[in-house]
Nucleic acid binder design. Structure first.
Lengths: 227, 227
DNA sequence: AACATGAAAACTGTTAACACTTATTTGGGG
DNA sequence: CCCCAAATAAGTGTTAACAGTTTTCATGTT
């Protein structure tokens, strides 16, 4: 049962495995399957009306996103992200973004600032609509623009490899988004201003601030959730 | 046909896919299959006396190591590493190692220095024996110790994800190893001395030097090979 | 001779059945 | 009643056959 994805009239060919990846990723990020839960290939395949081959390939890809862990002869389980993981994810992303700025700030064009500005509007709107999914997408997109300035594909790839895990972190605290959410927009506004100033030291300082505060807010939640 | 790997009497269970990964990786790193060459799943499976399932899974894993690229309905191709790739690989590794030192130099124990010292001996010996494979293994191991100081698993993982690509780079210039090879040992000796001094600034400076010179030596070769 | 066209071959993507491993249940002995 | 062991069920790993796509090759036309 091969699948074609349609988008604006143009046909993009994709494999079932890739579609299954999206499906499972969504299940994990929306909490349909929960951290620590084992993933049954047969059941999942049947639910998705697909055979086990694509499911296995999809699980391998999700393993590389860090959403899933794997043991031989025991299969895949949804990753549990600890406070330590949160620390690693955010410090590493901060590190990558700081280095991206250091090596590529001169690539910052007005178009980038426009794109970021537009993202801030989407941010604000998704807050009003209490649309967590959209909020996360904006956050990820925002930081993707920053690392993109480096034009360093391996740096960019290492960064985006953690996108899903960032999404999963958000999920962990999703129940109390409303209170925190306004600060997120504020914080990104500050980052935007720093970028617009094109002052390298300032940007780097704000980046570190940004992630430090994000981490602070997250860690207490995570510790009470599961060590 | 499930396979068990034996090692020093103890039995480690592993999957066929993992064995196949090792096999294909070896083929790529020894030049049995060459950059740009397409990988035929059926032929490869037959050669390895295995079915296509494990081969496909292995190719997925090798894709994440950067040794292989993949197009839907066209299968896998051995990655071609350009001068730009060399630049990215070495600048990114340098960046990761510098940050590892910055966040984890205080974790440097005498045991680490002993291990590094031992590696320098292995280095020297593999030079004498003109054992390129061993030389590469030492180089990778040496730098693994450095990033290991960070105790930051995501940083470590991002670094080791490029190990195979470093091996592939070496391969590209393997024909003229002899001349260059003595410098490699020298350079690592300098790095070792810097580490032994525990002087953070000095270590960072030497790391940057290290990769700069490695890159210089490589780039000319790579450009003449394939853009 | 160059080019387009369509059939055939080769190859990847997917499926379903088989083999082996792990988890669970059941029954018997302490 | 609890614990252990054998039998059984459930699950992952692997294989082989089928389906659809890409590539190659031959044929006919200009």
């Amino acid at each position: 049962m091969p699948i074609d994805s349609f988008s604006a009239g143009k046909i993009y060919r994709t494999s079932l495995s890739n579609e299954v990846v999206k499906e499972i990723r969504k299940m994990i990020l929306t909490g349909t399957i929960k951290p620590g839960q084992r993933i049954n290939e047969v059941h999942l395949a049947r639910d998705l009306q697909v055979s086990r081959g694509p499911v296995r390939e999809a699980l391998l890809m999700l393993k590389n996103e860090g959403l899933v862990t794997h043991e031989v002869n025991r299969g895949a389980t949804v990753s549990i992200l600890s406070a330590r993981d949160a620390y690693e994810i955010y410090t590493f992303r901060a590190m990558l973004e700081v280095n991206a700025i250091e090596m590529g700030l001169e690539n910052l064009q007005d178009e980038h600032l426009q794109a970021l500005s537009h993202l801030l509007e989407r941010f604000a709107q998704s807050v009003q609509e209490a649309n967590a999914e959209e909020l996360i997408a904006c956050d990820i997109e925002f930081h993707k623009v920053i690392v993109g300035l480096s034009k360093h594909s391996r740096l960019i790839q290492a960064h985006s490899q953690m996108d899903s895990q960032v999404g999963a972190m958000f999920l962990t605290i999703a129940n109390e988004l409303p209170k925190r959410v306004n600060r997120v927009v504020e914080i990104h506004q500050i980052l935007y201003d720093a970028l617009a100033s094109r002052d390298k030291e300032k940007i780097i300082q704000e980046l570190n601030m940004h992630y430090l505060s994000t981490l602070k807010e997250l860690e207490s939640k995570l510790k009470e959730a599961h060590g």
